[in-house]
């Protein structure tokens, strides 16, 4: 079999290899004084861009009521079966709201389908990404921990609206 060798022809200085080694050493030496790319985590926190799909949260209206109407669309669409909803009746004009709404963050895969399917823009993927804890129970987020004032989520709500409008045009 004919083999075509693709080796590079080395010059004498390259064959000696000491100059090449010195070249490499000079690169690594210069690297030592370049600015660091590591982020000092607990002090310097990463501000996630608006497109990040972090911890899903429930939107709380200005008057403290949930936007969610417990329609269970997210419960259906959730591929990881992380969402559990129990509905109850309210006295408001929108006569239905979740009595229990829990997202099991151990199961959640942060796919964002719940946000996309929600007809009320009530479940929103926030920029919270610090999702570690010591017990399993503490990672099942219930309604009290999920409800977030609409002010904190406005940016993401606007972003999703633009995104989905573009898709569905």
């Amino acid at each position: 079999m004919k083999v075509k060798r693709m080796e590079k022809k080395l010059s004498f200085m390259e064959k000696l290899s000491i100059p090449e080694i010195l070249k490499g050493l000079s690169i690594t030496f210069r690297n030592m004084f370049k600015p660091k790319v590591t982020r000092l985590y607990p002090e310097e926190r990463y501000k996630a861009p608006i497109a990040l799909k972090g911890q899903p949260l429930l939107v709380e209206n200005e008057d403290g009521t949930p936007r969610c109407v417990a329609c269970s669309m997210c419960e259906v669409v959730c591929p990881a079966l992380a969402i559990t909803i129990k509905a109850e009746e309210t006295e408001r004009y929108i006569e239905r709201e979740p009595e229990e709404f829990s997202i099991d963050m151990l199961r959640c895969i942060l796919c964002g389908l719940c946000e996309e399917v929600c007809p009320k823009e009530a479940i929103i993927m926030s920029d919270r990404y610090e999702l570690a804890n010591f017990t399993r129970e503490s990672l099942v987020f219930h309604k009290d921990r999920l409800m977030t004032p609409i002010k904190e989520l406005e940016g993401r709500i606007r972003f999703t609206k633009e995104k989905f409008d573009k898709w569905h045009r």
Partner: peptide, 13 residues
Amino acid sequence: KVSAWIQFRYGPN
């Protein structure tokens, strides 16, 4: 420390 500096890191601090 040196390995960290060469790799643009801080090393143990």
